[in-house]
């Protein structure tokens, strides 16, 4: 069979196909409603839901809940009749499957292991995702766009969240499920998996580009300077920009919110930056220390 068909019809992967369809559908629906409300806002008209009246819960709401419950139950039942849950061989610690994949919703994090050491990819970054999500209501001080779909009133919030959700979370999951084969090597869906395939990529560390051994003291210092200037520069640059162009915003944010926002943002952006460094320039580490590597 065509490997592509084979891969998307694997029982567990059907869930991913359903996820892609559902997420795409609701993404389009959300943005379509957002743009529709934006047009109403531009015309000075009330947005969808603003003129809502109250209706009885019994029965309009109870009825629609019941209908949804029945539809979901029918859908799950059909899915369960049509597709059987896989059961592989009994667990055997001596036979390691290749690739050994985490559950699908963690494959984005597993993908990060290509670019970061486990303490970052598996512990620090996931924790920061949770912290960042928890922080959203407290760092987003824009009072607009509360209770209705809109894009124009909260462009940056939506763009940053969408980048994190659709690209860094969902796209990496899809890559992990469909494009990663033995040895976590990249396989196009139409390529056969080849267990003997070895890709030799002579990765380097950043400092060796300028001829400094990354494990030497000068290498350590240069690496520390690069990482430090990314963090410090990333912290200062927006401050100076806003100080000049939008000082009211800075005053409204206050120092604690500002530092939290920028720290979370530059941490998030370090992921695509490190991906480009690794994939395009074959750079493994930027900074090597006796305790950890970045």
């Amino acid at each position: 069979m065509n490997p592509f068909i084979e891969i998307i019809t694997q029982p567990d992967n059907i869930a991913i196909v359903i996820m892609i369809i559902m997420v795409t559908f609701f993404m389009v629906w959300a943005f379509q409603q957002a743009f529709q409300n934006d047009r109403l806002l531009a015309a000075g008209l009330p947005v969808d839901g603003e003129k809502d009246k109250f209706v009885d819960t019994f029965k309009p709401l109870v009825r629609i809940e019941l209908i949804i419950a029945i539809v979901v139950m029918v859908g799950l039942t059909v899915w369960s009749i049509a597709v059987d849950a896989p059961l592989e061989e009994i667990a055997n610690p001596t036979i390691t499957p290749n690739p050994a994949k985490a559950p699908w919703y963690f494959l984005g994090l597993q993908e990060l292991l290509v670019y970061f050491d486990p303490w970052l990819a598996g512990v620090v970054l996931p924790s920061l995702i949770v912290v960042g999500l928890l922080a959203i209501p407290y760092i987003d001080i824009n009072p607009k766009g509360n209770g209705y779909y809109t894009f124009s009133e909260r462009k940056y919030a939506i763009m940053i969240f969408s980048f994190g959700f659709f690209v860094l979370w969902l796209l990496l999951i899809v890559i992990g499920v469909f494009f990663r084969g033995p040895g976590w090597l990249w396989y196009w869906p139409w390529q056969e998996w080849d267990h003997a395939r070895v890709v030799f990529e002579p990765t380097k560390d950043l400092t060796s580009l300028i001829g400094v051994d990354s494990r030497s003291l000068p290498g350590f210092i240069i690496g520390a300077l690069v990482v430090g200037s990314y963090l410090v520069g990333g912290m200062i640059a927006p401050y100076r920009y806003w100080k000049k162009n939008n000082p009211e915003l800075l005053a409204k944010l206050g120092i604690v919110r500002y530092v939290t926002i920028i720290f979370l943002f530059i941490t998030m952006m370090s992921i695509p930056i490190k991906m480009v460094l690794r994939l395009v320039f074959l750079i493994k580490y930027i900074w090597i220390t006796p305790w950890f590597n970045v």
């Binding site: 567990d12 869930a15 359903i18 996820m19 559902m22 997420v23 609701f26 993404m27 959300a30 957002a34 979901v72 799950l76 699908w104 919703y105 999500l133 959203i136 209501p137 987003d140 009072p143 607009k144 766009g145 509360n146 209770g147 209705y148 779909y149 809109t150 909260r154 939506i158 969240f161 959700f165």
Partner: peptide, 22 residues
């Protein structure tokens, strides 16, 4: 699998309508 998918979409909806705000 379904619950994991819909809980993520629920979060996306709440974000897009700004319902996390005060």
């Amino acid at each position: 699998h379904f619950m994991v998918i819909v809980v993520m979409i629920h979060m996306f909806r709440v974000f897009m309508t700004g319902s996390y705000k005060a």
